[in-house]
Design a protein around this nucleic acid. Structure first.
Lengths: 167, 167
DNA sequence: AATATCTTTCATTTTTTTTTGAAAGTTTAA
DNA sequence: TTAAACTTTCAAAAAAAAATGAAAGATATT
């Protein structure tokens, strides 16, 4: 396998993986492309390499920047914009964790709190509902706290975690 | 908010959350419904409560059973089948982790290993590619190992993890 | 201030995913 | 072994998501 093939395979695989995690294919592919580029990449190059339209490239780059995992770069003397991805994997994990917590977990917690707080009458059905959603609330809250803690460690949290867990 | 509203809100929210995690809405809704039901539920009831077709119910129940988080139940004297969800949340997390590892992480690792093993010639571009995909391989491998370890603890791994991390 | 270079927006089109429902399949019971 | 009760399958339809591209919007240059 030569470089071109390998790069292509990586970008395709990352893209497919993205879909399975609720991220759209192109967005994941752009991210993959930037991750393995040693130089900032122009929108033109991204369009060319992934065979996508200008609008598509623009919108997905915007989304990636909203996630805080892709940055704009300005090259001296160049009019157009260039893009780079966050390449530090710990930093990347932290950013994704924080963002997903904010966008998805926190709102879900709010709903869980609400629905688990209804005044259950005597019926076994309602009691079970309250019990189960309360457990779910506790569980998700704990999981979210773990994420928070992890992001505090920031550097190399994964290795530390592994060490702690294996001992 | 009364019970009916709360239940509906929970099912809807869980369904929406599912979409953001690469699981289809109906599948997540069926799972939500079963999670908060104290009694096994028939396919007829699922169709009725979620307003979905028989085929849809059948296929998504099958998918949930493939994930190992929903079970068929047979009631004495009853011809039709009933369904229940795994309600132990630790167990649920373990099953989902294992399944995602098997379906997504392991195959991704294989590709990462492949593409990071190309024979990089002297160009900075190729060197960077190999370096970055190698780092990614190590990172994902470590993360996958953490999942493995977690599943060994099985009961209440989350609480243990939290304690370890906060100390 | 007019023009050139580049980016964003968004209505429309295309693609992908999900859902439907009727036919085929399966199991139990009479 | 026939029929009744239920489940699964899958081609077609519907819905949802993503992509296009041209026009509008910026921003720099002459």
């Amino acid at each position: 396998m030569d470089f071109k093939e390998a790069k292509n395979k990586f970008v395709q695989t990352w893209g497919a993986l993205g879909s399975q995690w609720g991220i759209n294919k192109t967005m994941a592919q752009i991210h993959a492309l930037l991750m393995v580029s040693n130089e900032p990449v122009s929108m033109e190059d991204i369009m060319e390499e992934l065979q996508i339209s200008r609008g598509n490239a623009s919108m997905n780059l915007r989304a990636l920047m909203d996630w805080g995992i892709v940055y704009k770069e300005f090259k001296a003397g160049e009019r157009r914009e260039f893009f780079t991805a966050e390449k530090d994997l710990d930093e990347l994990a932290v950013k994704i964790s924080k963002e997903r917590s904010k966008r998805e977990i926190k709102p879900a917690l709010k709903v869980l709190k609400e629905v688990s707080s209804i005044n259950a009458n005597a019926s076994a059905e309602e009691k079970h509902f309250v019990e189960q959603t309360s457990k779910l609330y506790d569980f998700v809250l704990k999981a979210d706290n773990v994420l928070d803690k992890i992001t505090e460690y920031k550097d190399n949290w994964l290795a530390q975690l592994l060490v702690k867990f294996m001992k």
